[in-house]
Computed example of a mutant assay.
Amino acid sequence: MTVRVMLVSPARNAALREVRFDDEGPLDEAGARRAGEAAGALPGADRYLSAPAVRCRQTATALGLPAAPEPALSGWDLGHWRGRTLQELSEEEPEAVAAWLSDPLAAPHGGESLDGLRERIGGWLEGLEAAGGRLLVVADPAVVRIAVVHALALGTEAFWRLDVAPLTLTELSGRAGRWNLRCGRPLET
């Protein structure tokens, strides 16, 4: 049975503007306004989900989506690095950052490794095939990136080569373990 998973990245918040690892903060005023302006620009779906992060839930609400929170879609757990910038961490923990950027099994921050994120999101994605239909999801950029990596059977290191802009739509359609990708469509009304 074919399933279409439409992944929407959330609007901007302070962490994204300041290039910090997300700290579960809310949308800023500009992000909320942009999401509201994009309401109505999304295709319809049979089901709507949101990652539990405040930024994702607020984006879903601003887009007018009746999205239920889905714990499996939680963002990448970066442990004690949450709320910090990569620049700060590179100065304070250069070896840890180097390991994190080069080894998908590394989790020097005490959170989830990149391989762990891939296993979690890949398992969720594969579990959707049985239900089929159209699913629209608001999820953090890291979740969208790793879903693409998993769906296309790319090496995990490809994660670092993908960018997901705020308020863009990435579509995966799959059947029998094969996925196709349509990526990065901006939400415009």
Rank of each mutant, 00 (worst) to 15 (best):
S173I: 12
R12E: 15
S74T: 14
L187H: 11
L78G: 08
G133R: 06
L117I: 07
G123M: 01
P71F: 13
A39I: 00
D46L: 07
E171P: 05
P10G: 02
R82G: 10
V148M: 14
G127Q: 10
A106W: 09
N180K: 08
W81H: 13
L152W: 09
R57Q: 15
E92S: 15
A107M: 02
G116N: 07
A176C: 08
D115T: 11
V144P: 00
E95R: 08
S102T: 15
L16N: 01
S9Q: 10
L27S: 01
W76F: 12
P69H: 09
V149D: 01
V19N: 13
R145M: 12
L27C: 04
C183I: 07
A96M: 03
A176W: 14
H80D: 15
A14F: 07
D103T: 11
L27E: 02
R47D: 13
R55K: 14
V148G: 04
H80R: 15
L135G: 01
L128Y: 06
L187E: 04
R20S: 13
G132E: 02
A96N: 04
P71Y: 12
V3T: 10
A15T: 03
E112T: 04
R4Q: 11
T2I: 10
A35M: 12
A53N: 07
R20L: 10
A142E: 02
E95N: 11
R175K: 11
V8L: 13
S90Y: 05
L105K: 14
G75I: 00
V149I: 08
R161T: 08
P26H: 04
G174P: 07
A62L: 05
W100I: 00
W160V: 11
E119L: 08
V149C: 08
L105V: 05
G132H: 06
E88S: 15
F159A: 05
G174Q: 07
R84L: 08
R47P: 03
R84P: 00
H80A: 13
P94T: 03
G127N: 10
P69R: 06
M1H: 13
Y48V: 08
L65C: 06
G36H: 09
A142C: 11
V137Y: 00
N180F: 09
P104Q: 09
E29I: 05
A68E: 15
F159N: 04
E188I: 12
A14Y: 07
L78F: 04
G155Q: 13
E24H: 15
T189E: 12
G132P: 01
V143I: 04
M1A: 14
R84F: 06
E70D: 14
N180L: 14
L125C: 09
R33L: 15
R4W: 02
R120C: 00
P166V: 00
A45N: 13
G31K: 03
W76N: 05
W124M: 09
D77T: 09
G111E: 00
V97A: 01
R178L: 12
A45R: 00
A106I: 05
L167I: 10
L89Q: 02
I146K: 04
D103L: 08
V148Y: 05
L105G: 15
T2R: 14
E18P: 01
G36I: 09
T168L: 10
S74I: 09
V144W: 01
A51Q: 01
L105A: 15
G184K: 07
A99H: 02
G127I: 08
V144S: 01
L101Y: 05
A72D: 14
R118V: 03
E129N: 06
L187C: 09
M1V: 13
H109Q: 12
R34N: 08
E70Y: 07
A158F: 09
